[in-house]
Amino acid sequence: MRILIISADRTTVSGHPQNIGDAFLTDALSRALRHADNDVVIADFGSAVRVGSEETRMRVSGVKGLASLIRGVDAVVLGGGTLLQDDQPTRPFAGLPRLCLSAGLIARASGKRFVIFGVGVDPVRRRRMRLAIGATLRLARVWVRDSASQARAAALMPGTPGLSGDVSLFDYSPRGADDRASVVRTGVLLALNRREAGALTLGQVEALRQQWGAVHFVSMDQGDDSDGGSLAPEVATALGYAGRSQSWRTVSQTIASADVVIASRMHAMYMGVLTGVPVVAIAGFAKVDAFAADFHVETAATIEEATAKRGRVDGAAVEAAVRDLTAAETRMLAFLGGSR
């Protein structure tokens, strides 16, 4: 079966992903579907060809380009990330709600199976956007990422969608205690959103350095409004942050060698728990709070509070979530008529 994945993953002019988390989860979903004996292509609405991608991507421009791509596949999977949200609240009808509804309508008109799998659903206040997201949900067979998303989706559609977990969990590979012990640890890794990065101070960096020996920063968003771009110049200098774009694999390897991850970026936390690295989540963001509850990591209200914490990882919770995701994938593939 030939399957098209539509996600929020985009390639910047440098050939790197705009958002590390979106690239990470999109590739994980693509690999899982390929391993189930499907031919998979990812729609990329970005500006260039992805550097070093191991998954098949096709650049798409506009609704006509999307329609042409959908007509050439057997099924469409709207997959991963917080796709069901009002991401451009100052515009009447744009962004992700428009993309998702367009994909669903084209798939329906073309006679293609349409699935929404592993997505997050944010609170949506504008009536027009709620109607658009509700219409998209009605066009699809739906599995969402977490229980909070499940409740929000259920309020916009008939019935209750399935629960899958986050598709980045497809990247899980069991590692023994000996493997983890052999990793040379490199200190604390910060993966902060723009707000938290902008508030980071030299004093906080120094406090973390005294505790962990070294402090590193990764920018999970690499677009025009990157997380790293919000760092104060003196803080960026102290962290040795140069602003170079990276692949998700490079970021994942950096996180895997850390002593602890302190993050307000959810998929940096996923990279941490998937490689057995303790995590401290900066609370106060809906999807971060949901992650912390599901995976039992430590939380802190501020970076200041996080400097006193050691982090936590619950391997049993990760393994249980991977089993749930695999079971949901089996049900999705049965619906699509694919393998497994």
Rank of each mutant, 00 (worst) to 15 (best):
D87W: 09
A103D: 06
G95N: 10
L84E: 07
L84G: 07
M129Q: 11
C100S: 12
I133R: 05
R127C: 07
A135T: 06
G111K: 00
R125I: 11
D122R: 14
R127G: 07
V119E: 05
R125W: 09
V115D: 03
M129F: 13
A132E: 05
L96I: 02
P92M: 10
G120R: 07
R108E: 10
P123S: 00
F114T: 01
S110T: 05
Q88A: 11
P92T: 08
V121M: 07
G104D: 08
G104K: 10
I133H: 04
L105A: 08
F114M: 03
V119Y: 08
L99E: 12
R91S: 15
V124D: 03
A94I: 10
A94K: 08
I106R: 08
R126L: 06
P92K: 08
L84K: 10
F114C: 05
G111S: 00
D86Q: 07
Q88C: 09
R108V: 04
R125S: 12
S110Y: 00
L101Q: 07
D122V: 03
A135D: 00
L96H: 14
F114L: 12
G134H: 04
R108G: 00
A103C: 11
T136V: 02
D86C: 08
L84T: 02
P97Q: 13
G104Y: 09
V115G: 03
D86Y: 09
R130P: 01
I116S: 07
R130C: 06
S110M: 13
I106S: 01
R125K: 13
R126F: 08
R125T: 13
D86V: 05
S110C: 12
P97I: 14
A135H: 03
R98P: 01
D122K: 14
G104F: 12
P97Y: 14
S110H: 03
S110G: 00
M129G: 00
I133W: 02
L131P: 00
Q88I: 14
Q85H: 14
A94Q: 12
L105K: 15
R127H: 13
G104S: 06
L105N: 00
D122H: 13
V121D: 01
S102D: 15
